[in-house]
Amino acid sequence: MNCRKVRRCLFSYFKDELPEDFKTEIKLHLEGCPGCASEALEVERIASLVEESLETLKPSPDFNQKLLSEVQKLSSEKVKEVRRTAFTLARITGFDYKIKWALAGSFAAIILVSVLWFTQKRTPLTTEPISAEGERTERLELVHQESSADSAYREMLKRLMNESRVKGKTFVLDNFGPVGSRGIDGTRRSEDSYRRFIIETAGHRSQERRMGSHYVLPVVSTQQASVKENY
């Protein structure tokens, strides 16, 4: 255990991020090495400085109030919009002197708005993925004699992909442990079968990539082939 290595790991040591045996090695080294020990003291001070003496900003006292009034506005805006649309519709169709028809118009408008609302809000932070929806469905139909658990799993993957909040190009999948993976539907599968599901569902052009204990899957089109880092 040389000094250079020890000094590199000091912060992690004090943050308790190191495995036990490694920690013990460092501890022993520090006991016998005054140079590293004084360095360690400094790092410990910095670590506690970060934890304890940063100024904590508080939001202004009326923050919650202001926020909630904005939230109310959101819901009331929707209602106003619907009513406006309904009356406009009624006027256009020439039935504005009949309350019955105005009601029917507003009902239709509500349906229209809610359909738009629900379909729009699927991918809020991203643009729609460019990947071919048709292509995916096609691929699924090629697979015959699937168990119901398997098709349920496939459905979940598809849903995740459609609802992916990630830039329309990747999504994070499951927790992948050391001994088989527990999929999002709670069943255990081998790494290979897991990979097979992902590739089959996402399309043959997709490239899987491990990110820690997750699979990140770029659902690619012909143009885009890599995951962009944002930071």
Partner: peptide, 10 residues
């Protein structure tokens, strides 16, 4: 890693 969409190693 999930929030920033970058690998854990990074």
């Amino acid at each position: 890693s999930q929030s920033l969409e970058i690998p854990m190693g990074t």
